[in-house]
């Protein structure tokens, strides 16, 4: 067991980074090929044909560097992303980090609330047979309703109650976040073995003590994977919530304005930014997990 803990840094580099890099290269190649394929018709019609004869090299070069391509090429997206980050101040709506921060804010608020709700619901379900039978079907049913249908309703209702800004968006992020946490925590809180619960029984431990000293720590290995799922779902929730309001800011709003104006490069860079945001938030959760679980859990 202990040998598995030794640091295989060199091996990790070879085994983890290399496969990821080769897939990245493959994706980029496919992407470029797609650009040439999808943009060639437009390129010929709008750019090349008016100028007269052209070579294959001209065609490829043009398809990869068009003004409003069907599919922007990776370097166009990268350049747009880079310029949005470097050429504009952080508080400018032209800077994608500004939008990412707006989305991250509602995501994080929704994530924290959703995690709390999920843990509380799971604790209630585990401690009461009635709640188990009454709540669980509704919790599952809640997730079968598409979030796109719920988002406008929530926004309208919360708006009429005077909630605007972060709150409605966080509410929708929370709606997506709590579910994986609830399911994992119900399983985790029930994971202690019979012998462990009997041990607490012989100590005449109260239910509260059994919860804090046995059930909750036993549930942590179940909680963290669900948190990673939850925060990724939270980003989706926050972005969806930004769509129907005609919100001024946020990656969802940026996607929407991009599609209004046919700014495909803008859409793609917003998309890449949201992927990076999701990645960043997920690895932040993973970092917290490593910090908390460093102790003891290597047993399983």
């Amino acid at each position: 067991m202990a040998t598995a803990l030794m640091k295989p840094d060199a091996i990790t580099l070879k085994q983890r980074v290399l496969p990821v890099l080769s897939i990245l290269v493959a994706v980029l190649l496919l992407w470029y090929a797609g650009c040439v394929g999808l943009n060639s018709a437009g390129a010929i019609e709008r750019v090349l044909a008016p100028k007269g004869p052209y070579s294959v090299g001209d065609l490829v070069h043009t398809t990869l560097n068009m003004q409003r391509p069907v599919l922007p090429s990776p370097h166009q997206v990268a350049a747009d992303l880079y310029s949005s980050l470097v050429d504009w101040p952080l508080d400018s709506p032209r800077n994608l980090l500004y939008h990412a921060a707006v989305t991250a804010q509602s995501t994080l608020v929704g994530f924290v609330l959703g995690t709390l709700l999920g843990v509380v619901l799971a604790a209630a379900i585990v401690h009461s047979r009635t709640l188990d039978r009454a709540l669980l079907p509704w919790i599952v049913a809640s997730q079968t309703v598409p979030v796109l249908a719920i988002a406008p309703i929530v926004l309208v209702i919360l708006g009429s109650l005077g909630f605007s800004g972060v709150a409605p968006k966080a509410a929708i992020a929370m709606y997506l976040c709590f579910f994986p946490v609830t399911v994992a925590m119900v399983q985790g809180l029930r994971s202690p073995q019979r012998i462990e619960t009997e041990l607490m029984h012989t100590y005449a431990a109260s239910r509260t003590q059994a919860f804090w000293m046995l059930r909750l720590p036993a549930a942590l290995p179940f909680l963290f994977p669900s948190l990673r799922v939850a925060i990724a779902a939270g980003v989706v929730g926050a972005m969806v919530a930004e769509l129907p309001t005609g919100a001024q800011a946020g990656l969802g709003a940026k996607l929407l304005t991009g599609s209004y104006y046919g700014n495909t490069v803008g859409i793609w860079s917003a998309l890449v930014m949201s992927a990076l945001l999701g990645l960043g938030l997920t690895s932040a959760v993973a970092g917290v997990e490593r910090l908390v679980m460093r102790r003891g859990s290597a047993a399983q």
């Binding site: 073995q193 012998i195 462990e196 009997e198 041990l199 607490m200 012989t202 100590y203 005449a204 431990a205 003590q209 000293m213 046995l214 720590p217 036993a218 942590l220 102790r295 003891g296 859990s297 047993a299 399983q300």
Partner: peptide, 29 residues
């Protein structure tokens, strides 16, 4: 009244607690 101690067939130690913290468990309770 916590009048007895019980030793099970398996050690039933909590993996997230150190040896010391495991022995402290009933006292903390």
């Amino acid at each position: 009244a916590r009048a007895y101690g019980y030793v099970f067939q398996a050690p039933a130690l909590f993996p997230w607690r150190t040896v010391l913290a495991n022995v402290m468990l009933p006292l903390q309770i």
